[in-house]
């Protein structure tokens, strides 16, 4: 397999990394909002969050993406496939991350919230300055795990017309008839990206104050 082909795969992997990391971050933001809804004590918000989380965890990502892809034209929305892909992945990962965060929020010691109350923090301030940072630290391993799952699941976004690593590999196989070399290379690139993410995650866990480290 030529360097030229491998370079094409590498370039496509940048799209994979971009779509995944943007989706993880948007998903994290949405997951925090879902957690806020859960903790708000406001019934309709809690119901919405519950429904959202169970719907997107209970249906396959592929189906969600196909649904989104076919729904948008019907409701008259025209957006680039990149945006469709990011919306689809973000919403899906938001549901999983919200579920992960739930354990983290439950793990925030009551005493830390009480000392925030005594310091005069409003519930919103306590949420963003105390609960969120601590819940994130408690669930960091799950977050890293989710990032890796999304990097792999991003191979599905080709169904909305985006050319990322897996789709590029398929295209190259169709024109070169070298499936073994090309798919093995694609797999290797996924593996390297995920090893980097896992290692960075462990470093972060070790260094973050108030988690395992100092």
């Amino acid at each position: 397999m030529s360097w030229k082909l491998f370079n094409l795969l590498l370039e496509a992997s940048l799209m994979t990394i971009f779509v995944s990391s943007v989706s993880i971050l948007i998903g994290l933001f949405l997951a925090i909002l879902l957690s806020a809804a859960n903790l708000s004590g406001i019934r309709p918000l809690q119901w919405f969050a519950k429904f959202f989380i169970s719907f997107f965890r209970g249906t396959p990502l592929l189906v969600q993406l196909l649904l989104l892809y076919n729904l948008l034209p019907v409701i008259g929305v025209q957006i680039p496939s990149l945006v469709t892909a990011i919306i689809g992945l973000s919403i899906c990962t938001a549901a999983y991350q919200a579920e992960n965060l739930r354990g983290g929020f439950e793990g925030v010691p009551t005493g830390l919230v009480e000392s925030a109350d005594m310091a005069g923090f409003t519930p919103v301030q306590t949420f963003f300055h105390i609960r969120v940072p601590i819940a994130l630290r408690l669930t960091l391993p799950a977050l890293i795990n989710e990032a890796i799952l999304i990097l792999k699941a991003s191979s599905l976004v080709s169904v909305v017309g985006l050319i990322e690593l897996t789709r590029m590999a398929q295209n190259l196989v169709a024109s070169t008839f070298m499936p073994l070399e090309i798919y093995a290379s694609a797999g290797l690139i996924y593996l390297v990206i995920n090893l980097v993410v896992a290692t960075a995650g462990r470093q972060l866990e070790r260094r973050l104050p108030g988690v395992g480290g100092k």
């Binding site: 010691p109 005493g111 009480e114 000392s115 925030a116 601590i134 104050p209 108030g210």
Partner: peptide, 11 residues
């Protein structure tokens, strides 16, 4: 208020 368990914010 000063608590038995300090309750400092660890982060």
């Amino acid at each position: 208020m000063v608590f038995q368990q300090f309750n400092l914010w660890p982060h």
